[in-house]
Design a protein around this nucleic acid. Structure first.
Lengths: 162, 162
DNA sequence: GTGGGTGCAAAGTGTTTGCAAGTGT
DNA sequence: ACACTTGCAAACACTTTGCACCCAC
């Protein structure tokens, strides 16, 4: 998937804030910068740490208050990975229909898109009398190579950390 | 989707307990009966209420301790619907690959299966070097009829409760 | 100037757990 | 008898919120 344009994302968020009569504060900017400096999924706690590196004054409360704004504006998407905290996906803005393969061996997540699946979802939904608004597909899988060779050569398939 | 055989499910769970050297207690039986008396998705709190109707002695702690056993045995599946609590799907045993359409108008959930989607998932995963272990697809949709007529005639599409 | 925003710490809430007593096998 | 189980209540962990002060527009 092509990389996103972080400038565009930031502009979109500022616009979103304006629409709702909300303000562009230094804290929100620090959070915004942090969000679009990564393409990885992250937690609220991680985001707090990143944002504080840019602006010491960012508090946990502000992170938790900004996260819903980012999801509401469509720039971020909540992800439930079965852990005790919520993950956020910064790749949603450019690829709203992308799916996830989660390797149960190494916890790594691979993203992919499939027009065919998207189309089928739409067709089936239509038959059942619905219009698709959003979709989320998570595949839990195991790494073929790891199973066969006992290790995993994929760059995207490192041993699970922690 | 054809209805499940609750007798088989119960037998499977008893067997699962035996395998792990766990015991068949009255409380677990009450919970088990309750789980397979419904085809709807439910919460831990609902399950507690149902189980207590069969056996007053069932406590919240036992429900929370039994739920992981039921998921581990493959009879139940956790569902995240974006609410603050976890939902459980009792239809997983017979239809492990079924998907969900969640109507954002009325909160109703419709289940469906699609061999084509399942196959595509498998193919794509294989190409990326993974073997599918499980999958979950949730489609958020809106009810066509509701949008056009202002109300919803589908039996499965009642107004959202609460 | 004013309505929104912030940090802090306390509160909230679904879920988990330590403990002493009970019970299936 | 020996583990495994249970109910109760306290503990947890992530997230939310009340409040008094602050600041972007």
């Amino acid at each position: 998937m092509p990389a996103r344009d972080s400038q565009t994302c930031k502009a979109r968020f500022v616009e979103f804030l304006a629409t709702k009569n909300l303000r562009v504060t230094p804290q929100r900017q620090a959070i915004l910068e942090s969000v679009f400096a990564t393409e990885e999924h992250f937690t609220a706690e991680q985001l707090l740490e990143w944002a504080q590196r840019r602006d010491r004054s960012v508090s946990r409360a502000t992170v938790y208050r900004t996260l819903p704004l980012l999801t509401e504006s469509g720039l971020l998407r909540e992800m439930d990975l079965g852990k005790d905290h919520t993950y956020y996906d910064p790749n949603h803005a450019d690829h709203p229909d992308h799916n996830h393969i989660i390797c149960e061996d190494c916890d790594k997540i691979v993203e992919f898109e499939s027009d065919k699946i998207t189309k089928l979802e739409s067709e089936i939904s239509h038959k059942l009398g619905f219009s698709v608004k959003a979709q989320r597909l998570q595949i839990t899988a195991s790494c073929d190579e790891l199973k066969k060779l006992g290790h995993c050569s994929k760059k995207s398939c490192e041993p699970a950390h922690k």
